[in-house]
């Protein structure tokens, strides 16, 4: 057994100490692009602390600083906790279902015996990713509407019609499952790629040892995608309170507002009123980022306890 200090082998520690400055050149282009297109515009964050109207200079003597007012407006809003709850739960359940599924599907596809069939299935699984949001939600209305296919089937089977869009309980499952449906195949791709790194000889050896296919999945395949899974897991946790507004807005009815109003739809609506709320929406965005970062750092430090595959 190799000796380990703080999760690293001696070899790794030696490597860490021997710096290779050439490697910086590999990273330079990415560094420069990110600097120009992400760091240069970052002064826009200051808008969160201003009474900003487009056309104002973000840093000048005329800038109107309002301190934490924009944040206070959000925190004091009577919807605040509802928004946090709705956003978090939507992301959380989405994560619980949406994260493991691609991993499982990739493992299953990888262990299928008919390789050609497996390829065909993969290709079909990834197609839903290309359906635009508008059509996706349009289909949900067609399938789950009061007189949609699902309700017609329910009635034919002797049940009664259920208004999926008028009951707030139905919102989250519908949102999440349709999202999972669209993207599980797409998200499985990265795992399939990682699985191709498995050396077939490992499998041969295991077979000779009499290991069943299922055992080999756990003993060989799963560890092979561990790094990718771990990084994706951390990143997903770091996105736990972000949800785009477009799909939610399309699926929103006044009846399901209680569950479907999330942070970004709320900010979007405030912006729509025409009251010019750049300061407010930037502040909310910043708040969101801070929470996400806290989650990310927590997840990353937890991951460090188990694996060397962490973000930083």
């Amino acid at each position: 057994m190799e000796q380990r200090i703080a999760g690293l082998t001696l070899k790794e520690i030696r490597k860490k100490e021997k710096k290779n400055y050439w490697l910086l050149l590999f990273i330079l282009p990415a560094f420069v692009f990110v600097f120009i297109f992400c760091y240069v515009p970052m002064y826009g964050i200051l808008i969160a602390f201003q009474d900003f109207v487009p056309g104002d200079e973000i840093l000048s003597q005329y800038t109107i600083w309002v301190g934490w007012d924009n944040f206070a407006m959000f925190f004091k809003d009577y919807m605040f906790w509802t928004l946090i709850e709705n956003t978090f739960l939507l992301c959380f359940f989405g994560f619980i279902i949406g994260f493991p599924l691609p991993v499982i599907v990739a493992l299953m596809l990888n262990s299928m015996r008919h390789k050609r069939l497996s390829k065909t299935i993969q290709t079909i699984y990834y197609i839903p990713h290309f359906i635009s949001l508008v059509v996706m939600v349009g289909m949900l209305y067609l399938f789950f509407g009061q007189y949609g296919l699902v309700n017609n089937a329910l009635e034919a089977l002797g049940g009664s019609r259920y208004s999926f869009f008028l009951h707030e309980e139905a919102f989250r499952p519908m949102y999440i499952l349709s999202g999972v449906w669209q993207d599980f195949g797409w998200n499985a791709i990265i795992y399939l790629a990682a699985l191709s790194g498995v050396d077939p000889e490992q499998h041969e050896a295991a077979i000779i040892d009499g290991a069943s296919r299922l055992r080999r999945v756990f003993a060989i395949d799963l560890p092979a995608i561990g790094g990718t899974t771990s990084i994706l897991l951390i990143l997903s946790i770091g996105n736990m309170i972000s949800v785009g507004y477009e799909k939610v807005l399309l699926m929103q009815t006044d009846a399901n507002l209680g569950k479907s109003e999330v942070i970004m739809t709320y900010v979007y609506k405030k912006g729509l009123t025409g009251y010019v709320m750049q300061g407010f929406s930037t502040a909310v965005g910043l708040f969101n980022s801070v929470v996400n970062v806290i989650l990310l750092i927590t997840a990353n430090s937890l991951a460090k306890l188990f694996s060397k595959n962490t973000l930083f």
């Binding site: 290779n20 990273i27 760091y39 826009g44 770091g238 965005g285 973000l311 930083f312």
Partner: peptide, 22 residues
């Protein structure tokens, strides 16, 4: 692992995943 300032560089990139100027 032998990349110098590895932690700084990773952080430099990760920040942009969360903070942007709009």
């Amino acid at each position: 692992l032998e990349l110098p300032w590895r932690k700084f560089i990773a952080t430099y990139f990760i920040i942009t995943m969360f903070f942007g100027g709009g």
